[in-house]
Computed example of a mutant assay.
Amino acid sequence: MKKLLLLSFFALFLISCGSTKNTGKVPEAIIGKNETKTVRKVNPHKNDKVSVRKNEEESEGTNNEESPKTIKKGIIDYAKTFQGTKYKFGGTTDAGMDCSGLVYTAFQKENITLPRISRDMATKGILISFKDIEEGDLVFFKTSRKNTITHVGLVVEAKRGEVKFIHSTTQAGVIISSLDEDYWKKAFVEVRRVI
């Protein structure tokens, strides 16, 4: 009986997506830093990787201040390139990622640093009423018996009362789901806006 209980606890731990991989102390979200950086772009139809060098010279003559809508679209579009990526606890690449790894990586692409763990992400930004939810907001869930946030998703569509979000699940990897699905509706906790 004791072994069965221990095995059940271990299985619940693996199912939870609240990655605890320590990546060091990270600052709160910083929007719009214009620094030289190397980013990885993934063609959603192929797994070819292309490194792109982005710096101030390339953006000369353009407005360096991106609108929040443009930043959110960039985050969502980049997150969608990972659709079909398998689940990997603590992962942040197309070789495998967990829920918080997906969100962390998508925001990092736009120079916005979030905490690496979903429960810590839920302390950033501002709390939003569900009726005010928008694309680019973060949705948080409690997917285990623990009384703590264990899962995060990125809202990719919020139209006519239906909310769709991209996230990484242990069973299907990176997918888009709806908050109308019973499981997610019951596990839903809150919405937060970082941008």
Rank of each mutant, 00 (worst) to 15 (best):
T92A: 07
R53Y: 11
T62G: 11
D98Q: 03
N22H: 12
R40T: 12
T105Q: 04
F82C: 09
G24P: 04
Y78I: 02
D77S: 00
T62E: 10
S100D: 06
E28M: 08
G84N: 00
F89I: 11
I75M: 09
T81L: 06
A11M: 15
A106G: 09
E65Q: 06
D77W: 10
Q108V: 04
A95S: 14
I75D: 05
T23H: 15
K86V: 12
G91P: 09
I75Y: 05
D94M: 11
G96S: 02
V26G: 05
K80N: 12
R40Y: 13
I15D: 14
S67V: 00
R53I: 13
G24V: 12
A95N: 12
A106I: 00
S19M: 08
L102G: 02
E56I: 14
K41V: 15
D94V: 09
F13G: 11
A79R: 00
F107P: 00
N63H: 07
G90P: 00
K88A: 15
E110A: 03
T38C: 03
T23W: 15
D48A: 05
C17M: 15
T70H: 06
P68F: 04
R53N: 10
G24C: 11
Y87K: 02
T23Q: 14
G90I: 04
I76G: 07
G18L: 12
P44K: 13
Y78G: 01
K86M: 03
S59Q: 08
D98P: 02
K33R: 14
T92E: 07
V39E: 03
G74I: 09
G101A: 05
K21E: 15
Q83A: 00
D98E: 07
E57M: 13
E35Y: 08
E60N: 10
K80R: 13
E58I: 06
Q83R: 13
E110F: 05
Q83E: 12
R53M: 08
R40L: 14
N34E: 14
P27K: 06
N64P: 13
S100A: 06
N34W: 10
D98V: 05
F82R: 01
K37F: 07
S67P: 04
H45I: 12
Y78V: 05
I31F: 06
G101D: 08
D48R: 02
K69F: 01
Y104M: 08
T38F: 14
V39D: 01
S67W: 06
I75C: 02
N63T: 09
S51D: 08
T85E: 04
H45F: 15
S19E: 11
A95M: 10
V26I: 11
K33F: 11
A11G: 08
G24S: 07
K109S: 01
G24K: 01
A29I: 13
E35M: 00
D48N: 11
L12M: 14
K37L: 03
S67I: 06
R40Q: 15
G24Y: 04
K37N: 07
E60Y: 02
V42A: 13
N55V: 08
T38D: 12
K25W: 11
K72V: 07
E35L: 13
K80S: 01
G90Q: 01
A95I: 07
T93W: 04
D98H: 06
A106F: 08
I75R: 07
N22K: 05
G32L: 13
V50P: 07
L12E: 09
E65H: 02
G84C: 10
F13T: 14
A95F: 10
D94R: 04
D94W: 06
F107L: 04
E57L: 13
H45K: 15
